[in-house]
Every structure is written in C-alpha cells, then in structure tokens.
Design a protein around this nucleic acid. Structure first.
Length: 425
RNA sequence: GGAGGGAUGGCCGAGUGGACUAUGGCGGCUGUCUUGAAAACAGCUGUGGCAGCAAUGUCACCGGGGGUUCGAAUCCCUCUCCCUCCGCCA
C-alpha cells in the first residue's frame, strides 16, 4: 500500500512511475476521485456528529433537571440529525471500501536506482561469479541422474498427488535435509534468528505481504477453515509483527525460517514440466528483515551478500541479476535474483529473489516501530530473500558435481551434514 | 466434539444507558526537595483520520464487524481469540 498522501500531493509523479512499471491498470485516478469525495463527506458528517454529541449531553442534563418537554423536543430534532448521519456514514462506508480496494491494487514504486525497462529482457546482470566447470563428457540433466541413482521417484510422486509432485529417496532426501540444516546454520552465523512458523495462514497475512488480492489463483486454500497454504515463508514471518508497534531499539530484526512452500502454478501451466524445477510443493530457507527506512538499500545489499554466501560455499557458478522496472514484482521497490548455473539443463536457475519492499508491506500489515522512546511510530521497511530455494539447488548440485559414471560428488561443506558421505552412487 | 467463563489504556483492574472528558493502582516521563540518589509530593501519559503554515479544533477507537437509542465500554446480533472442565487423539 502506498501512502495516500503521496498520491494526493504528487499524482503526476505516481502516474509516471506506474508507466515505468508497465502497469496500465493501476487505478490512480480512481483513488484521487474517491479520496476527494471521502474527505468532503468526512467534514460534513463530523460536523453533524459534533452537534449530536453536544446536544445529547444537553438532553441528559435536561432530563436530570426534570425538563421533560424541552428534552423531548431536542430528541425529535436529533433523531433527524441521526438519520442524516446514517446516510452519510453508509455512503462513507462504501467509499472507504472502494478506496481501500483501489489502493490495494496500486503496486509499490521502484527506487530511483532501479533501471527502467519494459520486461525481463532488460534486466541487468550485475556480476557473474565462478567459472562453469568444463566436462570431458556430455553432462546429463538431473532427472536422468536422479532416476538412475534411485534418489528421485517421479512416477510415485504422481501416483500420490498428481503432476508436479515427486518423491526424494535415500541420499536424495538426505541431501535436501542436509542443505536445509546447513543453510540455516550459515544464516544463523550471519546474525539471523531462526523461527519455526505455521504453514497455513489466515487471509489477512496474505494481504499483508501483497499476495492477495492479486494472486489468489496461485494459492492453495482450505475452504472449510478459511486458511491458505503459504506460498513462501515470507508470508508468516513478515506477519509475525503485524499490527504491532516495535519498541525503540528493536530494529533491525533479522529472521531465517525453513518452510515448505505451496503453489498451484496455474500461471505457468506447461512450463518446466520435466524434473523438479517447478513443483507444487518445494522447500525453502528464507531470510526476512525489518529495518529502519534509512537502512533500506544497504540492508538489501547485505541480504544479497548473505544469500550469495551459500552459492559461494557450494562452489557453484552463479550470477546476480537486477530486475528492471518492467519486471519488478507488485510489492518490490528493488529486487535482485540469484541464479545458479546448471550444466545438465544448460540454464541459469533462479534460486533466490532478494527484495526491498520499503514501507509497502508494512502499511498493508500495519507494522511500525518507535525511532526513539516516546517518539511517534513510523512504518518499518521490510525485506526478504531466499537463502535458498531447495529443489533448484539440488538440481545444480547433481548436475555440477556429476561424474562420468553417473555418481555425484557431495560438496565439501555438506559432508558433515550427510554423516560423512562424500559421493552419491 | 460437549458444557461453561472471559477479552477495557504499557500492565493490573473498576465500570450494567447520560457527571465516562474511562475510577483506582502499578509502571514510565517531568518538576519540587537533595551534594547525588531514594522516599515524599505535584503535574503529565495511547493510536489514527480530517481541517490548518501553525497554535489548535474536530471525529473515531473499551477484541473485530453490524444493530437498537437523542445518547452505548454498558443492551441486542454476529465473528475471532483466550481460559476452565469433560470426551477423543499423534
């Protein structure tokens, strides 16, 4: 949610930013019209209420004095005022709802540092680290390696739950579990506090992070209890402090959480159907930060660095890509993706998205802090980044560390987490 | 799943239709006294919207939403959450 004052005072600037975001549907003009009508009605209805408050007090006073007739006259008069107030209040309620709906459909504004571009073709590769391994044999894709090693079972996954589900077995399951534990440990070492959170949440949490109302069709939902499966740990972790005013001195707050993620992938039907790249259920270790506005951009840089550390320690080549305005998500003001090179599928796999949301989520979720004791509350800035998304890291490991005989060497850093196993065969 | 009891300010807790501008206490802040501190005493105390350059004014908020009434913390409906007892359960 943007600050409505900004839209009211700088409408031309906001329109211009919407154009840069390639968002032609953002209802800026509607917000302006509704806002004006709302304020007009507010002053009218509040005058009426002020009058009713004073006159009602007088009625009480007259009744105590035993002056029945005058009290009754005033009552009759106030009854009419009450009817008017009700009319205005009803109208206001409708306007408020419409305004809220319009406001919640306007995306966040990009930072000035974000390159302007029309779509993902104009994203900027900021840096590439590591050299892709050279093979003296044809590297195979992970689905061949995984099936041959008996560590990925696609058919039984489909039997259990349908397409885009799979089963990890033996050292495959163990590799994933090792990665989760190891990545959590690395991020804890970087100063993040681990949290374990619910995997189903109320609707309000999804609104807070910006997943609703716009992306409802990508989410799984339990109708009976009106709970939603989380599409990312970002949702429960960011909402930890929903409707709170954090006391002075509590920022920055840095959390790391392991959760599964559930996505219907209806937008991507038919894409990436082979292998484990895009499933309905996947695991992720996620970092979430709550910081003071002044620290926003610096905290984004350090968030990217914290996620990069995982790639670096795994010794897998990766690159950092900055999203241009046309490819920013609805809620992000600035965003970097981390992509691991995977030689079997011959592509850069997106394993992390690190975003700064400025105060956009904090407004929607009502998360504030006190800069100093006794000072007025301000909205925090929120950030999050995967560190990292699992199946794709598993893909990159299998494909990068594969041997001519189809076995896979276990990256050095993971061996202590695998009970000393150094090769999957 | 069944029965019952609750939700009031940073915290405890009173308040069953008008003096509530929410009693009282604790905590916190400021001041007086003191070399300093404690104690005592006095004053202050939340969030947001709208109007205004500002001082300020005004409205809303007693778990959420709706209703009754001239007037609601108080009465009615509804939802959420918490607690107690019983049953079931990894």
């Amino acid at each position: 949610m943007l600050d409505i004052k900004l839209i009211r005072e700088e409408p031309e600037f906001v329109r211009q930013q919407m154009a840069a975001l390639q968002d032609a549907d953002a209802p800026v003009d509607r917000v302006l019209a509704l806002d004006e009508e709302r304020r007009h009605l507010l002053t009218k209805v509040e005058d009426l209420k002020a009058r009713r408050n004073t006159e009602s007090k007088r009625i009480g006073q007259l009744m105590r004095e035993g002056n029945r007739e005058e009290a009754e006259t005033l009552k009759a008069e106030m009854s009419g005022v009450g009817d008017q107030i009700k009319l205005f209040d009803d109208r206001l309620r409708v306007i408020d709802e419409e305004l809220f709906d319009a406001m919640s459909r306007i995306p966040n504004l990009p930072l000035p540092s974000v390159p302007v571009g029309k779509d993902d073709s104009e994203n900027v590769v900021v840096r590439t680290e590591g050299t892709p391994r050279t093979f003296d044999f044809e590297p195979r894709p992970h689905w061949e390696l995984g099936e041959a090693l008996g560590i990925i079972d696609f058919e039984r996954g489909v039997k259990l739950s349908g397409s885009r589900f799979y089963v990890l077995k033996g050292l495959g399951a163990r590799l994933q579990r090792a990665l989760i534990t190891w990545m959590l440990d690395v991020h804890i070492g970087q100063g993040y506090d681990e949290v374990y959170v619910p995997f189903v949440v109320r609707e309000q949490c999804l609104f807070g992070t910006g997943s609703l109302p716009k992306f409802a069709e990508t989410l799984y939902r339990d109708i009976e209890d009106d709970l939603w499966l989380i599409p990312t740990a970002e949702v429960p972790v960011t909402n930890l402090y929903r409707d709170e005013i954090l006391p002075a001195g509590s920022l920055p707050i840095k959390h790391v959480a392991y959760t599964p993620c559930f996505r219907r992938e209806r937008m991507s039907a038919g894409r990436d159907v082979r292998g484990i790249k895009r499933g309905h259920q996947f695991d992720k270790v996620e970092m979430v930060k709550f910081v003071e506005p002044e620290q926003g951009e610096a905290e984004l840089d350090s968030l990217v660095a914290d996620a990069e550390e995982i790639c670096r320690l795994l010794a897998i080549p990766y690159r950092v890509v900055q999203m241009c305005t046309g490819d920013l998500s609805f809620v992000a003001a600035s965003k970097y993706d981390l992509e691991l090179w995977s030689p079997g599928v011959q592509e850069w796999l997106e394993v992390s998205s690190c975003s700064l949301f400025t105060d956009f989520q904090a407004r929607r979720a009502n998360i504030r802090y006190r800069p100093e004791e006794g000072a007025k509350p301000r909205h925090v800035y929120t950030l999050n980044g995967s560190g990292l998304a699992l199946p794709r890291v598993v893909i990159a490991i299998l494909e990068t560390y594969q041997q001519p005989d189809g076995s896979v060497t276990v990256p050095e850093v993971l061996r202590p987490y695998m009970g000393g196993v150094d090769v999957i065969r």
